[in-house]
Amino acid sequence: MGAAGVSSEAIDKRQIAASFSRAAGTYDQVAELQRSVGNNLLARLPEPPFQSQLADIGCGTGFFTRALAERFGRPVLGLDIAEGMLRYARDRSPNSLDWVAADAENLPLRSASQDLLFSSLALQWCPQLPQALAEAFRVLRPGGCMAFNTLVEGTLGELRDAWLAVDGFVHVNRFMPLTQLQLLLAQAGFARWHCEVESHVLHYGQLSELTHELKALGAHNLNAGRPSGLTGRARLRGLTAAYEVQRQAAGLPATYQVAQVLLFKGLDQV
């Protein structure tokens, strides 16, 4: 704990919340990948019981909160740690939807109160994923489902490799190895689970297009060990040269490894 009684983990969460709050106004303009992988998760969802309770964890701008409400014809609760995202979502959504500031690792929901939990590209920002999974298990009713996707190791590998040719700082967000994720899923206590990995490769004409997109999404580097201050021109030239080595016919590649996960709480589990 620091002098003010705040852990480094809490500081990281504040940085995450602030980064995504700042990105609220630009997120939807550049979220093509996010739409694609979220729609793929939506297509995997089981049909929840009639009159069920649904929640979208890490709802962001509310795109999938609204999609869930439309698909299942019932209200959905949108939860996010970033107040700026919630304000943006509230202003652009029907009054039938509710929005609550919440941490996925400490959900403000009653135990056994939800039938379906949905979370698209949010849980990779949780410092303690096992705690987020434990919270999901707690708030789900017996027979309920938690559906989420998350980025795993190998994501933005081209950018990471290019930076390694320039300096030793952490410039790219670290993501969990798939084997570690699978182990956590197996230990989370659910009756059954399924995990499938999708590989998405986007292409950019210039490196600046990728870096500007990451900033607009609020997903630029949030890890400890990142360099402070502005990145010098010489290092940017070095990064550009290192990334250009990887150029393909379609442009500069940026790979995203996305784990699509379904977790099912047993009917006899409380």
Rank of each mutant, 00 (worst) to 15 (best):
Q114A: 14
Q51A: 15
H220A: 15
A165V: 01
L117G: 09
A234F: 00
V6W: 04
L252H: 01
R66H: 02
P227M: 05
E135G: 11
A254L: 05
E213M: 15
L183N: 12
V261I: 15
D98V: 13
K13G: 05
G2D: 13
Y243E: 01
G154M: 06
L151M: 13
T179P: 00
F169S: 10
N106S: 15
E196D: 15
F175R: 01
Q34A: 10
F190E: 07
V139S: 08
G251R: 03
S21G: 15
D161N: 02
W193P: 01
L262T: 03
V170Y: 01
S8Q: 12
F50D: 11
L210S: 04
N149P: 08
S228D: 09
L79D: 09
M1I: 11
G25T: 05
L262D: 03
A23E: 04
V139H: 08
G144Q: 04
S119P: 07
N39C: 09
L107F: 11
H194Y: 07
M146D: 06
W163I: 00
R226N: 02
R66F: 05
N173F: 05
L77D: 01
G225Q: 09
N223E: 15
P46M: 13
V170E: 12
Q53L: 07
P127R: 06
W99R: 12
R174Y: 00
A69G: 11
F264A: 12
L33E: 09
V172R: 04
A101E: 15
A224M: 05
A241Q: 15
A242L: 07
A24F: 04
R71Y: 03
G229K: 09
G143Q: 08
A242H: 06
A17W: 02
L109E: 05
T211N: 04
L217P: 06
S21D: 02
L68K: 11
R71C: 05
K265M: 11
C59E: 04
G144T: 02
L202Y: 04
Q187P: 00
G266F: 10
V261R: 10
S96C: 12
F137A: 13
R66C: 14
L109Q: 09
A17F: 06
Q180I: 10
L97A: 03
Y27F: 13
D167A: 01
W125C: 11
A101I: 13
V30D: 02
A249C: 02
G78P: 01
G25L: 08
G25P: 00
V170S: 11
R44A: 14
S8F: 07
Q131L: 14
A254Y: 01
L263F: 13
Q15N: 13
G62T: 08
V201Q: 08
K215H: 10
F20H: 09
R92M: 00
R160T: 02
F20K: 05
S113T: 10
L236P: 00
P130I: 06
A234K: 12
L97R: 04
A43F: 01
H220D: 15
V76R: 03
F137T: 10
A249V: 14
Q128W: 02
A162E: 01
S119V: 10
A55K: 09
T255I: 02
R74Y: 00
V76L: 08
N221F: 04
G225Y: 08
R247W: 12
H212E: 14
S120H: 11
A43I: 01
T255N: 00
G251K: 05
F169Y: 00
I81D: 01
R160L: 03
L217E: 06
